[in-house]
Simulated scan of single mutants.
Amino acid sequence: MSIFRKTGITMLLVLVIAGSLLGARTFISGHSFTKKMIVAVPDVEEGDIIFQVSESGLSTAIQLATHSKYSHCGIIFKRDDDQWYVYEALQPVRYTPLQQWISRGKNGHCVIKRLKDAANVLTPAVITKMKAAGTPFNGKDYDFYFGWSDERIYCSELVWKIYKAATGLEVGKLQTLKEFDLSSPAVKQQMKEIYGDHIPLDEKIISPVSMFESPLLVTVKG
């Protein structure tokens, strides 16, 4: 075999291998990029309530206790940079960019709900009032005890209290802890970790599912 033929075969192999590696790299990078950017900003309005399934042990317990698919929620607002955010009670209470919030949930899935009479109720003045009502909670710790005080706060409590303070509306029915299904092992384990032997069964609670099923809301994305 001539040196030229050997050189040609060698170059061909190099090109094939390089092309394969480049293709693999492009695929991996593309997959990573798609994973990050697959979430498009949905058509939303300020004051919309957004729901998702968060991926945690506590989320599983909430789903089992409330018989709900969704375990986490927040309110959609714009900020000074004119971008969309979800105001949420996580650890701590904070504003999270909407795309980031959606992609963080299970399978990037979310449901967005809106007041039936949002056009009349959620005026610019009321949206400003809602943001003001939520400001004292910003930076507060997440309430793993699900208490009704304002010292700490959990996700649906934050949304409910902002709506109540700014509009007078109660989005979702308040319940007591004893009204939920506390029978599953996962729920019992979480209750034990949170409360020990002193479970506050009469504590007022607003659950994500109670808000999700509120007749005051309509689904705009699901």
Results as ranks from 00 to 15, higher is better:
residue 32 S to Q: 11
residue 14 V to G: 05
residue 6 K to S: 09
residue 171 V to N: 01
residue 44 V to S: 07
residue 100 Q to D: 14
residue 132 A to Y: 12
residue 77 F to D: 10
residue 56 S to M: 01
residue 90 L to R: 10
residue 40 A to C: 06
residue 51 F to Y: 07
residue 44 V to E: 01
residue 195 Y to Q: 02
residue 211 M to K: 04
residue 92 P to D: 01
residue 158 L to R: 12
residue 54 S to T: 14
residue 96 T to L: 01
residue 175 Q to V: 12
residue 24 A to D: 03
residue 22 L to D: 09
residue 101 W to L: 08
residue 5 R to F: 08
residue 162 I to D: 06
residue 182 L to T: 01
residue 168 G to V: 05
residue 18 A to T: 10
residue 132 A to T: 14
residue 111 V to M: 00
residue 44 V to M: 09
residue 94 R to G: 15
residue 150 D to W: 10
residue 187 V to T: 13
residue 129 K to E: 02
residue 54 S to A: 12
residue 174 L to G: 13
residue 107 N to R: 15
residue 65 A to N: 07
residue 189 Q to K: 02
residue 27 F to R: 02
residue 171 V to D: 02
residue 168 G to K: 05
residue 102 I to N: 03
residue 54 S to L: 04
residue 209 V to S: 10
residue 67 H to I: 06
residue 123 T to G: 05
residue 33 F to L: 15
residue 109 H to P: 00
residue 164 K to N: 04
residue 26 T to L: 12
residue 191 M to L: 13
residue 168 G to R: 03
residue 117 D to K: 15
residue 138 N to Y: 06
residue 136 P to R: 07
residue 176 T to S: 04
residue 82 D to C: 11
residue 34 T to H: 08
residue 5 R to E: 03
residue 184 S to A: 08
residue 135 T to A: 11
residue 168 G to M: 04
residue 29 S to K: 12
residue 203 E to Y: 00
residue 211 M to N: 13
residue 168 G to E: 01
residue 169 L to V: 02
residue 131 K to A: 15
residue 105 G to W: 09
residue 187 V to G: 00
residue 131 K to C: 11
residue 28 I to L: 09
residue 127 I to L: 05
residue 103 S to D: 14
residue 44 V to K: 01
residue 108 G to A: 10
residue 23 G to K: 05
residue 218 V to F: 12
residue 118 A to T: 13
residue 149 S to C: 10
residue 209 V to E: 08
residue 69 K to Y: 05
residue 55 E to K: 11
residue 25 R to V: 13
residue 57 G to Q: 09
residue 128 T to F: 04
residue 154 Y to E: 03
residue 165 A to V: 09
residue 184 S to T: 14
residue 192 K to R: 11
residue 121 V to C: 05
residue 42 P to E: 11
residue 74 G to D: 08
residue 204 K to G: 02
residue 159 V to A: 00
residue 54 S to W: 08
residue 17 I to C: 00
residue 26 T to E: 07
residue 7 T to C: 00
residue 150 D to E: 13
residue 47 G to N: 03
residue 164 K to E: 00
residue 204 K to E: 09
residue 181 D to K: 04
